[in-house]
Amino acid sequence: MFSKSAIKEIEEIRAKYPDSRSALLPALYIAQREYGWLTPEAMESVASALNIPSAIVKGVSTFYAMFKHKQMGRHLIQLCTNISCMILGAETLVDFLKNKYGLEEGGITPNGRFSLVIMECIGGCDVAPVMLVDNDFYGNLTEEKIENILGRYQ
């Protein structure tokens, strides 16, 4: 079950909408933060906090790519490979992450430090190729630059 503070947070969010179902996406973000990923228990916590059937919570959460339904690394690398990034070399960066860190799309490093998710366009095409590491945005990526950046995430 959720912590008291998470419940309170959900209550506050809920007050912003005319019905409680609308707080589902925000509540799923909170659950993901609290549990690391949307474990069955996390989804059930959301279900009971908002009085929404748990099957519905699962149905909704699996629709959205940013809700994770399996264990992720401590830090999430979200790398775009859509066209603007692709034509500027995003794919070599994927290779780099694979060779250097052993990261496959959707996978996790053996030490649990990173996970890699291949993204559709994340709106940074002017500085392609781009990635998000957790909530931080990085553009004009090169292999050296990635190595540098990742060094900051332990």
Binding site: R21, S22, L25, P26
Partner: peptide
């Protein structure tokens, strides 16, 4: 009253009616 509602990675939610579904807590 103005609030920010965060999507969660679904291009289709840019389509206006899918956006509404998503805002209301449904599959977009």
């Amino acid at each position: 009253h103005l609030s920010v509602h965060q999507g969660a990675g679904a291009y289709i939610c840019g389509e206006e009616t899918a956006l509404i579904e998503s805002l209301e807590g449904f599959r977009g």
